[in-house]
């Protein structure tokens, strides 16, 4: 190679432009599924942890990472799955949490539920279902503005 390979910091920046396939307002880096980026000799190794073991987005996430990095000229690429430590909502970035809130999804707060309604800020809330439109979310409703909303559940 005539050029120095892109630094891991630069690659993290590229990965931060890839939207989560199900919640496109946050990036894969915000989601916390990318656990490591490193060069092993000439091969770029990306370590990924799945959010939920059956989440259908996992395959799309891998494909999007691969497509993006190939477009950036990375030729030797290996994606590794890591199960432990298991993905937790603690891995979500602050930037991601704020983006969720703006998008109308209450960010993870405690196991008991969201802090406030993402629309009006009321704390007068009720749970309507433990599962929502994707494995990572639950359905809640605001008793003040009466709007239903998704809660990014805490695990």
């Amino acid at each position: 190679m005539s050029l120095a390979p892109p630094s891991p910091a630069k690659i993290w920046g590229w990965l931060d432009t890839i939207p989560d396939p199900e919640i496109p307002v946050i990036s894969l880096v915000d989601l916390g599924v990318i656990r490591a980026v490193e060069w092993q000799q000439e091969t770029l190794v990306i370590t990924i942890t799945p959010t939920y073991s059956g989440c259908p987005a996992t395959a799309i996430i891998n494909r999007d990472i691969e497509t993006t990095l190939r477009q950036k000229g990375i030729e030797n690429l290996r994606l590794i799955r890591r199960l432990s430590p298991a993905w937790s909502t603690d891995f979500l970035s602050e930037k991601g949490r704020a983006a969720l809130q703006r998008y109308g999804i209450a960010p993870p707060h405690t196991a008991a539920g969201p802090k406030s309604c993402p629309r009006c800020g009321s704390e007068n809330l009720e749970k309507t279902s433990q599962f929502g439109s994707t494995p990572c979310k639950a359905l809640w409703r605001c008793r003040d503005c009466l709007e239903p909303f998704d809660y990014f559940k805490c695990i």
Binding site: Y52, G54, C55, S129, Q130, F131, S133, T134, L139
Partner: peptide, 20 residues
């Protein structure tokens, strides 16, 4: 519908675990 979604999500978790 909430229960439909919950059942489908449960099934999905179980199938993901199966894969592992």
């Amino acid at each position: 519908i909430e229960e439909d979604i919950a059942l489908a999500n449960t099934a999905l978790d179980l199938l993901g675990q199966t894969q592992l």
